[in-house]
Amino acid sequence: MTDASATVQATLPRPVTHTYVDDAPVLKVTGLSKRFGAGCSYCSDPEAKLERNICPVCGTVHAVRNVSLEVHPGEILGIVGESGSGKSTLMQCLYFDQDPTEGDMRVAAFDGGAENCFLVSRQQQRYIRDRIFGMVYQNPYLGLRMNFSSLSNIAEKQIAAGVRNVHQMVDRGEELLERVKIPLRRKQDPPRAFSGGMQQRVQIAKALSNEPPVLFLDEVTTGLDLSVQARVLDLILSLRRDLGVSMVVVSHDLGVIRLLADRTIVMLDGQVIEHGLTDQIMQDPQHAYTQELVYSLL
């Protein structure tokens, strides 16, 4: 991590330049694995043949296997893959909802990438979660407190980050609700009383409340009708354009990935089978599974 990129982090928001080439990544993950089960001598070999993601010898589930990725400032990284390919588990590991079995994550905005954030204390992980990361879950019930008002939901992250001024948080909440196009007269309503699309937008507002430099979006548009979907996608692109937020976007919908992502990785059975520029993957898929995926879109 160089000094120059540290300054870049400090001066967010800023206009996005599309020359990422030599920029230090805001997020760098190497060798991330998540196992459910003890593992055995057979499946501890990274080249071992598994039945999909299950070890044929000991039955351990390898949900995420040796995944590495980088996200650069202002970049949107797409992750595609079928159901059960480990996308959400990967995201939850990145957001500290689950402890990875092994792996290394460097977060530039935290300490310039000096330490493996999977090994820092729980308090420091909370700090990263509350101030540097934002997360939008596939299921709004995971990301929102359904019985608290929308304003409180948005304020939660700010309280966690140490804000103790009610007016400031209410102002910020109203600003964000306006941004995600939720009428302010519903600010006191709990998300329980909202439609799915509105819940998803409240989640986005919540994730944005501390202006995090990194945003994780897990299937944000899944289950939304097309017009709402378009509005949410628009919002995501405008966030990148206006605030320069870096994002990791998980989706099994290639259309969404094609629209949003600059680069894409393709996951299958917990492993990355292909990665590259989104256009490249869409037009010239190399792996058999990716080919199947891309052709099924057409």
């Binding site: 729980r122 308090q123 909370r126 608290f148 409180s152 939660e156 309280i159 966690a160 103790r164 006191q188």
Partner: peptide, 30 residues
């Protein structure tokens, strides 16, 4: 704020008291 005892124990251990403030914030908002 949190129904599970295992979670509240952990929140206390980490001195993570967002929930207590959030309750008060919710009351003020309403």
């Amino acid at each position: 704020y949190e129904a599970r005892e295992t979670v509240t124990k952990r929140l206390h251990a980490e001195a993570e008291y967002t929930g207590a403030y959030l309750e008060l914030f919710e009351q003020i908002v309403r």
